[in-house]
Design a protein around this nucleic acid. Structure first.
Lengths: 149, 149
DNA sequence: CTTTTACTATACCTGTTTTATAGAGTTTGT
DNA sequence: ACAAACTCTATAAAACAGGTATAGTAAAAG
């Protein structure tokens, strides 16, 4: 399940992408327009900044703006940053592997095989969808150009 | 993330499938062999029984056994029963749809488009993988016969 | 027909994570 | 100096995961 944190992060990124030409965006403005609790949003934006996705400017006339180009910002990276690994079980995670104690032998664990397929299917989508893609979807209501499988 | 409840349920089902010819299996035996906390397992087996997946027999010589054939028992059904809907956001769930308040207009919500793809990708796998398939995987360490896409 | 075996049902508990909020601190522009 | 605006730490309510306790029901053995 996608947490609200990740959802807010994606909403914020879409918002910032749409306002790229307006200079830095205020946290207060973003919070009000997207109806995100302000203090919670501060935390999220800070995390995105520390990950190098956003940049900020302090003081009067400050605010947040994108640091990377919209086609470099991947949905998968944002979700991992906010919610942690995508894999449904740790033993199939590529970015945060950990052995599952429940399944004795990994090689013969059927759950692991199925969950690996699930992980790969999710990653295939979220790691090939950029903020650029999402902007197009917001206009069309559907995916425009498919990614290559 | 798959909870331990769902994981235990799948382990129990695989165990029961392997012991189909041995008559009813005791909760105690299953708990010991699969290293699942007994009281927790009782709850899980009861849920599976109430869903029509298992059957039970009380008294001496009693225990649990499969009610449905192994190719009718789908991984997706077990996960939904234990963990709830598969969809990462409620507004793309087929079995438990609910509107997301965060995204104003569903038609132009890019998050929704991506998460729908994710939901469908997950469902495609778990709703086409049966207990029979998992038993084969436990022998081979990988999927044997692919499902049709 | 009583005892033992074994599943059934409900309620409770405890630690962690999620979803925030409060408030002091720091930087910057004018 | 002053105010705008981001930064950082601490705190907390609510939900959830994972597990425990207790009492009850049904069936078979003897």
């Amino acid at each position: 399940m996608l947490t609200k944190k990740a959802k807010y992060a994606l909403l914020a990124l879409i918002y910032l992408a749409k306002h790229q030409n307006d200079g830095p965006v205020l946290i207060a403005q973003l919070a009000a327009d997207e109806k995100i609790p302000r203090k919670f949003l501060e935390r999220i934006l800070l995390d995105l900044k520390n990950a190098g996705i956003l940049q900020s400017k302090k003081g009067k006339g400050g605010g947040y703006s994108l640091q990377e180009s919209t086609d470099k910002i991947m949905v998968g990276d944002v979700i991992r940053l906010m919610d942690g690994p995508i894999a449904p079980v740790p033993c199939v995670s590529k970015t945060a592997y950990a052995k599952c104690k429940e399944c004795g032998d990994e090689a013969s664990c059927a759950i692991r095989v199925v969950m690996k397929e699930v992980r790969d299917a999710i990653a295939e989508i979220v790691d090939n969808t950029s903020l650029t893609d999402m902007l197009k979807m917001a206009n069309n209501g559907k995916r425009v150009s498919d990614y290559a499988i």
